[in-house]
Simulated scan of single mutants.
Amino acid sequence: MSKLSNQQIQDLFFKLRSNKAFEMFVIGVIVFSALMVGAKTYDIPPTLLKITHLLDWLITFIFLTEISVRFMGEPRKRDFFKNAWNVFDTVIVLVSIIPIDNSEMAVIGRLVRIFRVLRMISIIPELRTLLNSLLKALPQLGYVMLMMFIIFYIYAAVGSTFFEKVDPFLWGDISISMLTLFRVMTFEDWTDIMYDTMEVYPMSWVYYFTFICLTAFAFLNMVIGIVVSTLDEEHKQQDAERAEAEGEPSLKDLQQQISELKSLIENKKI
């Protein structure tokens, strides 16, 4: 009877944590927590400051309750902390409980409360998908960034060699030149820089034109393409996992069945 009762309690917590209304409530609390962090950056009356302090503890209590509900609703408790997001949420909530507002660790306490906004990612699946896609794309993005650094370095060396006398503030050495080129790539008043150098080197527009074509157009579009491709693969993987969980045939299984049917048809023809 006791086991049945425990199972019923676990099922109740599982249904509660899977409830959309519960998720929306938690998201609303996270948004309100973010607004509270922003409100504390203004000069507010002492009375209102006390109210925000009480609300902050109320938010922490709600987060602690929400973590407890998710943990109690986990079918296998030991699997709860195998999820990195669960570990992140638990650490953020537990550190928020420590009363360090009036101590030397007050800055850490404020930082932890700011990071509570990141819990939005762990709550909303679409945000988790975006972040996972970005992390999976990092190896490929690393090579693109390396190539961009090489281009930056070469153009910065050329720019520092030719344009240092034109404007030492922008082209004084290779590091400053790379910052100037970053400004050119982001189109932040880059024409002013180009016109200054064109007064001394009329053909210097070729330098800026080729640099912008390589970085702002070519390499940045490659970065976008890699992220979009990885995001598409992540969606396909999630669809396959969802189909497997629901007992439906995945795309891979369907392709295998089609190939088997084709081979049977060809064998019959032979």
Results as ranks from 00 to 15, higher is better:
residue 44 I to F: 05
residue 133 S to M: 05
residue 14 F to L: 11
residue 221 N to W: 10
residue 58 L to H: 04
residue 76 R to P: 01
residue 49 L to W: 08
residue 8 Q to W: 09
residue 154 I to M: 04
residue 213 C to Y: 05
residue 35 L to P: 00
residue 244 E to I: 06
residue 178 M to S: 11
residue 186 T to K: 07
residue 124 I to N: 02
residue 102 N to L: 13
residue 248 E to V: 04
residue 39 A to W: 12
residue 28 G to D: 08
residue 220 L to M: 06
residue 46 P to G: 03
residue 144 V to K: 01
residue 248 E to W: 04
residue 191 T to M: 03
residue 169 F to L: 14
residue 175 S to W: 13
residue 268 K to R: 12
residue 152 F to N: 02
residue 179 L to E: 15
residue 43 D to N: 14
residue 135 L to S: 03
residue 219 F to Y: 12
residue 105 M to G: 00
residue 147 M to N: 07
residue 129 T to G: 02
residue 259 S to C: 02
residue 22 F to T: 15
residue 93 V to N: 04
residue 112 V to R: 00
residue 187 F to A: 08
residue 8 Q to N: 12
residue 172 G to D: 10
residue 233 E to S: 11
residue 20 K to C: 04
residue 194 M to R: 15
residue 180 T to H: 05
residue 228 V to Q: 03
residue 208 Y to Q: 04
residue 243 A to W: 07
residue 9 I to H: 02
residue 48 L to N: 05
residue 81 F to Q: 09
residue 67 I to P: 00
residue 101 D to K: 12
residue 111 L to K: 05
residue 78 R to M: 10
residue 30 I to D: 01
residue 24 M to T: 12
residue 138 L to D: 05
residue 144 V to Q: 01
residue 183 R to S: 13
residue 41 T to Y: 14
residue 31 V to A: 03
residue 244 E to R: 14
residue 158 V to R: 08
residue 168 P to E: 14
residue 118 L to Y: 07
residue 64 L to F: 15
residue 64 L to S: 14
residue 91 V to K: 14
residue 206 V to M: 10
residue 59 I to E: 13
residue 100 I to C: 04
residue 51 I to K: 05
residue 240 A to V: 04
residue 247 G to N: 08
residue 166 V to G: 06
residue 207 Y to K: 06
residue 145 M to D: 04
residue 270 I to N: 10
residue 84 A to M: 13
residue 43 D to P: 00
residue 71 F to K: 06
residue 195 Y to T: 15
residue 226 I to H: 02
residue 135 L to H: 04
residue 126 E to I: 10
residue 16 L to F: 08
residue 47 T to N: 04
residue 165 K to I: 14
residue 1 M to N: 05
residue 138 L to H: 02
residue 146 L to N: 03
residue 60 T to E: 11
residue 181 L to Y: 02
residue 150 I to Q: 06
residue 59 I to R: 05
residue 147 M to P: 00
residue 114 I to V: 05
residue 247 G to Y: 13
residue 115 F to M: 07
residue 116 R to Y: 12
residue 145 M to C: 01
residue 62 I to L: 14
residue 270 I to K: 09
residue 151 I to Q: 03
residue 110 R to K: 11
residue 64 L to G: 15
residue 147 M to G: 11
residue 261 L to G: 02
residue 52 T to A: 03
residue 266 E to Y: 03
residue 170 L to R: 14
residue 32 F to E: 07
residue 146 L to I: 09
residue 54 L to K: 04
residue 200 V to A: 06
residue 91 V to E: 12
residue 105 M to A: 10
residue 198 M to W: 00
residue 96 S to F: 08
residue 89 D to L: 13
residue 129 T to P: 00
residue 265 I to T: 11
residue 13 F to P: 08
residue 88 F to E: 07
residue 262 K to A: 03
residue 137 A to I: 09
residue 82 K to P: 05
residue 164 E to Y: 10
residue 250 S to K: 11
residue 126 E to P: 01
residue 47 T to I: 12
residue 246 E to A: 08
residue 3 K to M: 07
residue 113 R to S: 02
residue 38 G to L: 15
